[in-house]
Computed example of a mutant assay.
Amino acid sequence: MTTHHPIAQRLVYGHATNHDCLAFADADTATEEAAEIRALASAQTWGQARQVQMTHLSNPAGPDCYEPEDGYGDDKPFDITEVGAVVDGYWPQMVTTRALDVLPQDLQDRYGKLVLTVHNGEYLEVPLDCETELVAELRERGYEVTRDDELINLLDGFDLGSLAG
C-alpha cells in the first residue's frame, strides 16, 4: 500500500536552459506564476511595475524595494533587467529548486544530483537523458506530467529582457 504525500499531482517540466538539465514545477500554479513574470517584464514604467499584482511571487520592483522618491518615479522607464534582484539572480527563484518540493524523494535520489550554488542555495540537477524513465515512473504513480520548455524557462527568468514591451 502506498501512502500519498500532499505534493503536486500535476507537474510541468522541461529543459532549463540556464542549468542544462530538467526542471519540474507544480502545473497548478506554474501558468499563473509565468503570467506574473510576463506582466512585470512587460511593464513600461516604474509605476506600472509597482502595480503588477503578484499572488505567487514577490514583486522585486514593488514599493517596498524601490521608492518613487529615490529616483524611481511612476513615469520613469522600467527595464526588468536592471532590477537588483533580477540582476543578482534572486528573482525569479531558480526553477531547478522546485524539483526538491514536487518530486518524490526516492526519485530525487535516483535521478537527480543535489547541487549547491554559492548564492542561491541548492537545486536538483536532473540529467536530460533521464527524461523518458523518470516521466514514465511519475506517470505510473498517477502523476499527470506535461513538457513545456518555454514555461519552465520563463519561470526561471531566462532571457527576461526579450519579454519587455
Rank of each mutant, 00 (worst) to 15 (best):
Glu140Ser: 10
Thr146Glu: 15
Ala30Leu: 06
Leu124Met: 01
Pro104Met: 00
Arg98His: 12
Glu69Lys: 13
Thr117Arg: 11
Cys65Leu: 12
Gln105Glu: 15
Ser162Thr: 10
Ile37Val: 15
Thr81Trp: 01
Val52Asp: 07
Ala99Phe: 05
Tyr90Phe: 15
Ala85Glu: 14
Thr146Trp: 06
Ala30Ile: 05
Glu82Trp: 12
Thr97Ser: 12
His119Val: 07
Thr81Gln: 08
Glu69Gln: 11
Gly121Arg: 01
Asp109Tyr: 00
Asp101Val: 00
Tyr111Asp: 01
Leu124Trp: 03
Glu67Ile: 05
Val126Thr: 06
Thr29Ser: 10
Asp74Ala: 11
Asp74Met: 11
Arg141Tyr: 02
Asp26Met: 07
Gly73His: 15
Asp28Phe: 00
Pro127Asn: 05
Asp26Trp: 02
Tyr123Arg: 05
Val95Met: 13
Ala61His: 01
Gly161Met: 08
Pro60Tyr: 03
Thr97Val: 11
Pro127His: 04
Leu114Gln: 07
Gln108Ser: 00
Gly112Lys: 02
Ser42Gln: 14
Leu57His: 01
Gly89Phe: 04
Glu144Ile: 08
Asn153Gln: 12
Asp70Arg: 08
Thr45Ser: 13
Glu33Gln: 15
Thr132Ile: 14
Asp28Pro: 00
Pro77Asn: 10
Val145Trp: 01
Gly84Cys: 11
Glu131His: 06
Asp88Gly: 11
Glu67Leu: 15
Tyr90Leu: 14
Ala39Glu: 08
Ser162Cys: 06
Val135Leu: 07
Ser58Pro: 05
Tyr143Phe: 15
Leu160Tyr: 07
Asp28Glu: 13
Ala34Arg: 09
Leu138His: 02
Gly73Phe: 15
Ile37Gly: 03
Val102Trp: 03
Val86Asn: 10
Gly157Lys: 11
Arg50Ala: 10
Ala27Met: 07
Asp129His: 15
Asp109Val: 06
Gly121Ser: 05
Tyr90Thr: 13
Ser58His: 14
Tyr143Gly: 04
Gly62Arg: 00
Pro68Gln: 03
Ser42Thr: 12
Ala43Asn: 01
Cys65Phe: 13
Arg38Leu: 11
Tyr143Gln: 01
Asn59Ala: 00
Gly121Asp: 01
Leu151Pro: 07
Thr146Lys: 14
Glu125His: 14
Pro104Trp: 01
